[in-house]
Design a protein around this nucleic acid. Structure first.
Length: 175
DNA sequence: CCCTGATTCGC
DNA sequence: GCGAATCAGG
């Protein structure tokens, strides 16, 4: 895969939107996050809003000449890497469309600066709803979503982890 | 463990 | 220029 004009433009766009390198890699397809990061640096648009410093120390010795195993996604990143969560998550979306963040004791505390309305949501932001929809206090988490998921790490965990009493009726006893 | 970006350097 | 390997860190 090469960097044609369109792919570079998309890279710039997604990078500026705050997607992670791996997310962008999945979006572009057939490329690794390393490639994305490398390109980002070459384009000189690194350092998005992150604290600087921490220069990586010099690398160590040479690399073996092993045949590079290419973990390439099959054209379309239906699943990203070993996202074991994805299937479980999708299933849950169907069965439990309305998570109850109010029920979560403390994990629903979202930094003010990160919260956003439905207008601010992008592919990279967590769409976990907090509060009563329609009310003034309602907002979305706004954190960075996991690759291929609408939620951030915290909320993805909440979403796919069985909440005991959320079990659907178990008509499908044997399987 | 999962992930993140940063850097080096053989190609 | 490209990106795997590696690093440092959350």
């Amino acid at each position: 895969m090469s960097w044609n004009d369109e792919r570079v433009e998309l890279l710039k766009k997604l990078w500026s939107e705050g997607l992670s390198a791996s997310q962008i890699a999945a979006e572009l397809g057939g490329i690794t996050r390393n490639a994305v990061i490398g390109k980002v640096h070459r384009l000189g648009l690194s350092g998005r809003a992150k604290a600087p410093a921490v220069a990586a120390r010099p690398r160590k010795a040479a690399r073996p000449e092993a045949p590079a195993p290419r973990p390439q996604a099959p054209t379309r990143p239906a699943t990203i890497g070993n996202t074991a969560l994805a299937p479980a998550f999708e299933e849950l979306v169907e069965t439990a469309p309305a998570p109850a963040p109010e029920a979560q004791p403390s994990a629903n505390i979202v930094p003010m600066g990160q919260r956003c309305t439905i207008m601010n949501l992008t592919e990279a932001t967590c769409r976990w709803p907090v509060g009563e929809p329609g009310t003034d206090a309602f907002y979305f988490c706004g954190g960075r979503s996991l690759p291929g998921m609408p939620y951030c790490t915290t909320h993805a965990r909440m979403a796919y982890q069985p909440v005991q009493d959320r079990r659907r009726d178990r008509r499908v006893a044997r399987l």
